[in-house]
Design a protein around this nucleic acid. Structure first.
Lengths: 235, 235
DNA sequence: CGGGCAATTGAGCATATTCAACCACAGTGG
DNA sequence: CCACTGTGGTTGAATATGCTCAATTGCCCG
């Protein structure tokens, strides 16, 4: 099923068979895109939403002086631009981090869902709000946590989000991005990000090498990161 | 009308008289609270939402090492915790910055709205997403803009948001908070915030004194702040 | 009058940035 | 086949930005 990972990620409310099929039937088509392609461009009117099926996607915004802030990393099961349904266009861009497979949900299909099923409507709404909660947690990280802690926190988050969809095990997970991407996400320079990764390695907490995060001491990492997963609303 | 400022803030979609009255009738009761009172405590199950009618409210989260990150400032017309309807509880707290007047919308009343009016449902959903867009813009500020620019950006945002509800004029606006609050919002220490405010004053852009922001050179301030208001979705 | 809070300033320090160099590796073209 | 090029990772040294600590002022309020 197209929506399997989405339902793994959001375990509540539990859906009836009816609702599950309404959701599944809202899928327009699926397609593949290659790494670094822009999926949604800032400001462009949208008529569809995108569910990520496989690969990684990130959302970002550039400032006038040439810096880039990554706003979100998306894993399979995430709607990457569901907020375009009420908002009609986005104030940031969305791009494929890796080669990806995505499913398209036309806005009309979403409108249909809202007409047919209050439960599904609430679930979709909720998913956009969990996304916002992650935005806020990143704001806390960048605004109030030190460089090393910030990075550790992000690794904890990704580990948990990937576990839900069975893309991680206790030992670690594939993270197909560069230190530059990581740096743009946590608001640091690539050079400093590199040094902080070394610190995490030297503390024997985690190790990011060859697109793979090896978590050596999960409890220690979470403690070091000041990590409290309640913002992910796993329930 | 209770919802006047909310409708001023969100000009689209334009509502029918029917929808306007459905929304207005969803109000349970209004009440006053005094400055610094906690309105919503992190993690507590919620059965109602809060619309701010008068005064200022902020949302915040504390880290384990005692730092506080302010996540949002709310002005009259903002729902401060509408996201509690789909999420059931919040991962952060909400507090009155000043003496405030608020209106309570029971979750049942919101559910009623979603049953009766798709247009209103979408409007409410949209309002939670504009809130999220502001979170993201703050993330860009804290992650990618320098201290002085960050503060200037926040002032530009507040000016615009307050103008929509006729709480600001071209010369400036009342901002009833301390430099400490400002510092916690932009991820700086109060000391450094103070110095950056001095810089804005010396550049003859804006001046924050006695709970009032005087904007001396609005165009210059916006330019200095790298301010693009599209994230507010004013339309 | 005294106590507490906010604003302000100075001095020294810590954290993160910038600039620069170097290595490894993959892809490209001669 | 091998030089050439571009990208990402790594490290060092100098610099800048923002933090900490400390002290002073003004003001409101009990």
């Amino acid at each position: 099923m197209i929506t399997t990972d989405f339902l793994r990620t959001h375990r509540t409310p539990v859906l009836t068979a009816d609702d599950r099929s309404i959701l599944e039937n809202a899928v327009g088509r699926t397609l593949k895109m290659s790494a670094r392609q822009i999926i949604v461009r800032e400001g462009v009117p949208l008529k569809q939403c995108t569910l990520l099926l496989d690969g990684f996607i990130h959302r970002f915004k550039d400032t006038s002086d040439g810096r880039r802030q990554i706003l979100a990393f998306h894993v399979p099961g995430d709607f990457v631009d569901l907020h375009s349904y009420p908002l009609k266009h986005l104030e940031h861009s969305v791009a494929a981090s890796t080669d990806v497979e995505i499913a398209i949900f036309p806005h009309e299909a979403i409108r249909d869902i809202t007409a047919k099923s209050p439960t599904l409507t609430e679930l979709l709404w909720k998913s956009t709000l969990v996304d916002a909660a992650i935005n806020r947690e990143w704001l806390v990280s960048v605004g109030a946590r030190s460089a090393a802690v910030r990075i550790a926190h992000l690794l904890c988050e990704l580990q948990l989000r990937l576990e839900r969809i069975e893309r991680a095990d206790a030992g670690g997970f594939a993270l197909p991005m560069t230190q530059i991407d990581l740096a743009d996400a946590v608001g640091l320079t690539p050079v400093h990000t590199n040094r902080m990764l070394r610190e995490l390695r030297e503390r024997k907490l985690a190790d990011f090498r060859e697109q793979y995060v090896r978590v050596h001491d999960r409890e220690g990492l979470c403690a070091f990161a000041d990590f409290d997963p309640s913002y992910l609303y796993l329930d």
